[in-house]
């Protein structure tokens, strides 16, 4: 029984961690990614604020969602952004998505014995998409730039001992593909098509298995399930996931912030018509980043 005396030694303990609730989620499409998170920050049963962003634009093709201990999360994002800025200064271009993913792994593992108590989901556009022969109008509209993913190739024909080189060049354009990387607090990571994390992970992930991966669903005879869903369908699933999580989890709610990363060259069909959408891209002629905000229940 504590009595204030120094007769018996007392053990005190400082816990450097806390949990700040909330949930994040990312889904990769064929040539886009959606990265979303709610905006409530809480501790125990108290809502600290109704607007604390958990999703951050890193570059014009990478968006990072962080969830767990908010102080660690904010510090981690700050340090990732700093490393990306250094990379930009050194290489005069943005770091590719897969390189950001590996960077995040090493940064997390560096803290293996005093971890950032944070679950990370990185979404964006990967440079591994299909090559498409461009139309002449495309090459006029988007002339090749040293930073762009446009490749000039020479056409060659072998005719016996001779090699004929065509006197025209053709333009090949690499379309980026949607990518999602998910991490654990000490840096284990993998590329996936979709991932939920945070307080309502257990509510959302099985729903996504069903709706994104079509788990436990049989395709009609002679047909197969699509490998990637269209953007409008993905946005509907994201909104449904968060309204459901808000309904059944006390730490989820207040607001929803959805980032959409569109691969360069993809027409933003249907995106302009979404109410309140905001473009946050910094450069022209690059992949594009948009934010969509929605209200969630506040109780």
């Amino acid at each position: 029984m504590p009595d204030g005396s120094f007769a018996h030694p007392q053990q005190r303990h400082f816990n450097p961690y806390t949990e700040n609730g909330g949930t994040i989620l990312a889904i990769a499409g064929a040539d886009f990614s959606v990265i979303a998170g709610d905006t409530r920050q809480s501790e125990g049963y108290s809502i600290q604020t109704r607007y604390a962003p958990k999703v951050f634009r890193l570059t014009d093709r990478a968006v990072l969602a962080v969830n767990g201990f908010a102080a660690d999360g904010n510090m981690f994002v700050k340090k990732v952004k700093q490393r990306l800025e250094w990379y930009r200064h050194a290489h005069a271009k943005d770091m590719p998505l897969r390189a950001i993913a590996r960077l995040i792994q090493t940064m997390l593992y560096a803290q293996r014995f005093f971890p950032y108590y944070v679950y990370n989901i990185l979404g964006g556009i990967e440079e591994d998409g299909k090559y498409h022969t461009s139309l002449p109008s495309y090459s006029t509209a988007f002339p090749p730039h040293p930073l762009s993913r446009v490749h000039w190739i020479k056409r060659e024909w072998k005719c016996g001992p001779k090699v004929l080189v065509a006197n025209t060049f053709r333009l090949l354009v690499q379309l980026g593909s949607g990518a999602v990387y998910s991490f654990d607090p000490v840096g284990s990571y993998e590329r996936e098509a979709c991932r939920a994390a945070g307080a309502a992970q257990s509510l959302v992930q099985p729903f996504l298995d069903n709706q994104i991966y079509f788990k436990n669903q049989t395709a009609p005879a002679g047909q197969s399930h699509p490998t990637h869903l269209p953007l409008q369908d993905v946005l509907s699933i994201v909104i449904d996931s968060f309204t459901s999580a808000t309904e059944r989890h006390i730490e989820v709610g207040d607001g929803l912030e959805m980032y959409v990363v569109l691969a360069k060259g993809r027409s933003p069909q249907g995106l302009e018509s979404i109410a309140g959408i905001q473009e946050v891209t910094t450069k022209s002629d690059s992949d594009r980043v948009f934010v969509i905000r929605r209200e969630l229940k506040k109780d």
């Binding site: 450097p16 806390t18 108290s46 604020t49 604390a52 908010a70 102080a71 904010n74 510090m75």
Partner: peptide, 18 residues
């Protein structure tokens, strides 16, 4: 003390938060 931060239009600490 943990470095947790947030901003809102009205904030209170301690018992005031409840």
């Amino acid at each position: 003390l943990l470095g947790t931060t947030y901003s809102a239009s009205t904030i209170a600490t301690g018992y005031g938060a409840h």
